[in-house]
Design a protein around this nucleic acid. Sequence first.
DNA 1: TCTGGGGTCCTAGGACCC
DNA 2: TCTGGGGTCCTAGGACCC
Length: 423
Amino acid sequence: MKAIVDCNSFYASCERLFKPALNDKPVVVLSNNDGCIVSRTDEAKALGIRMAGPYYQNKAEILKNNVAVFSSNYHLYGDMSKRVMETLRLLSPEVEVYSVDESFLDLTGIASEQLHAYALFLKHTTELWTGIPVSVGVAPTKVLSKVANRLAKKDKKGTQGVMILETPEQQMEALVKTAVEDIWGVGNAGAQKLRMFNINTAWDLRNMSEAWAGKNLGGVVGIRLVKELKGIPCIEMKDPLTTKKMIATTRMFGRAVYQLHELKEAVATYIARAAEKLRRQNSAAGAVSVFVVYNDNRAHQPYAPSSRSAYVTLPAATYLTHVLIAHIMPLLDALYKNGNKYIKAGVILSNIVPCNMVQYNLFEQPENPALQKLMHTIDNLNFGMGTDILKFASAGTKKNWKMRQELRSNRFTTKWDELCLVK
DNA sequence: TCTGGGGTCCTAGGACCC
DNA sequence: TCTGGGGTCCTAGGACCC
């Protein structure tokens, strides 16, 4: 059996933790640039505030109902996430961190009659140790455990935030109550197609043949999905040591940018951030691409931006920030068009390899060990003393293109000067 | 005025090889 | 008159996730 432990309204719960007066009150958290609503408490959901809805469109409703609003505070959420995951690792031998707010646990070896008590124990211990409320779904497959988790979360009183789907009867009851668009792995396109075939619930889909799913639901993906719904595991636990195959840093600008030198500053900053992530997993990148998003002046549609991108394969894989910058800047020169209004840019590192396996050739010599040490030192200083204590000159110093975050709470758990004060 | 950021996996189709 | 078949590798793009 597998469990999924999922934090309830994770970002909003992190904010509540340091403002207990907000317990039982509606709270929402916004995306970067205070653009969209990305986390809502049950009270905010009950007001009809939609997930991923633009903030400005919900502002009236938010003001009227006295909803507490926060900008994203990734220092705080990242640190709380780490605490939750560390707690789970102490309680269970095999934990796969699936996202910032959820993990799969392998429950092999726990007897049937113990499952419910164990799931409750996971939930209570996590909440006691971290202060973050969670829901737990348990089932033979990952897809079914997500079904269980969703129902547990929807009916917290009735289920105590825990649901086990072990017997065929339990599974049928849960699947009948789950609409196709609420199944993990079924998106908008898939749901529409299923509805056309008059397949409306997860139970309907479970009863289709694998051959049908293979033909109509995207080949192997569809077959896997139907099997998982039937209780046959196809999506296994992932090795926690796997490294990322792609590393991206992309941002909307806080205000539009017109000048090439500003665009270059922003992109150099993103490269530095991406290279940091690369070094953290001891990898090197063999290719890098850059893209810019802009509104040109002829565009009459209010939100119909265009984009351009460029790609370069490096002579040898590298994790050195300045080497990456040197390869990207000429691409940016070529992409830039004077007069365009730039609203976003990003870099994507790919062809990622472990840094001790870099292939050199006749013309590319291995990195100088001194440079390796320099990167290590920069990373350590930036980590210990705050991001951007040390940086490359090409990243600029003014950064007036940086994103807006007007409603950010304190970084209570990661900055000395922002600790919670107790009178 | 105003709509995020960072990932994974799969498929189709082209280039190339013998 | 008549012009194969099978395989691999790579890339772009779509769908999906939180």
